[in-house]
């Protein structure tokens, strides 16, 4: 503490003190929030919303199909697309880092095209153009194969960039140490660099999984059988059957059932990575 003579010369502004201003700022923010919530609550027609979206008996009829069929298919589509995309993305990332020019260009072109196109167009392309281009051939795995292909083509472009960034984030000394021990470039990449890169990019890769989970709804543009329906398609079908939107709400909640925990996992991984900075 300084002596009393210092407090005497402390410049005192007229008007609000720092503490008062802070209190006012916070109070204003709460007030705006409360006003917005109240306005929404008053303005919306909750009765009609409840009728259209929250019919308990319609929701009950959806079980167990919505879980055993639709959610299961959504998960399967997502995972198959993710695995295909991861493998393709890895290849493209390595091509991007290649010392061979044409590989680098090809990878760049792929990434720019598939990041620049809406996923919807890719699905239509896979559904229409691929059968046209290769008449008589079937994409293996039926609808699952097509979805894996479409989702994989889209996600590979994003994952390639993520993987490339991860590989480049591994310190240069790691490659030098591996090479000095006699690892060939390829073996050093597989045994030393890539395992470290994946640790770095686990959070963004999981985010990609969440995005794919939602994009799997685009499968309805491929045309699916009843048994191949996933959450969005089932929700829409049941909504038109029952002339009520409750199935949409239920399907939506099913998405959140998966995406929210995944997002939490990502957040935990990120804060853990922050702690582990050495």
């Amino acid at each position: 503490m300084t002596g009393p003579e210092h407090t005497d010369v402390t410049p005192r502004r007229k008007g609000l003190t720092r503490r008062q201003r802070r209190g006012l700022a916070r109070g204003t923010q709460y007030a705006v929030f409360a006003a917005a919530v109240t306005a929404l609550a008053v303005a919306a027609d909750w009765g009609r919303l409840r009728n259209q979206f929250a019919q308990a008996d319609i929701a009950r009829q959806m079980f167990p199909d919505v879980i055993t069929l639709a959610l299961k298919n959504t998960v399967l589509y997502t995972l198959s697309g993710f695995v295909f995309g991861l493998v393709l993305g890895m290849v493209i990332a390595l091509m991007r880092l290649s010392s061979v020019g044409p590989y680098r260009w090809l990878a760049s072109v792929y990434i720019e095209i598939f990041r620049g196109l809406p996923a919807l167009l890719i699905f239509i392309f896979v559904g229409v153009a691929v059968p046209l281009a290769f008449p008589g051939t079937e994409i293996p795995g039926g609808t699952y194969g097509k979805v894996a292909l479409a989702l994989g083509l889209v996600s590979a472009a994003y994952m390639a960039e993520t993987i490339r960034a991860g590989i480049q984030a591994v310190p240069k000394g790691q490659l030098e140490a591996a090479r000095s021990l006699g690892f060939s470039p390829a073996r050093a990449m597989v045994s030393v660099i890539v395992p470290q890169a994946f640790r770095i990019i686990l959070p963004p890769l999981t985010n990609e999984l969440v995005l794919l989970f939602k994009d799997s709804s685009l499968v309805l543009f491929l045309g699916v059988t009843l048994q191949e329906r996933e959450l969005s398609k089932l929700g829409r079908d049941l909504a038109s059957q029952t002339a009520n939107s409750t199935p949409i709400l239920v399907a939506g909640l099913c998405y959140l059932l998966v995406t929210v925990p995944l997002s939490l996992v990502v957040r935990r991984m990120e804060s853990k990575a922050q702690e582990a900075v050495r």
Partner: peptide, 14 residues
């Protein structure tokens, strides 16, 4: 290189 061991300033352990 297998016959040549190298030790770095920054250790470079994996």
């Amino acid at each position: 290189r297998r016959r040549i061991g190298m030790v770095f300033q920054q250790f470079n352990l994996f």
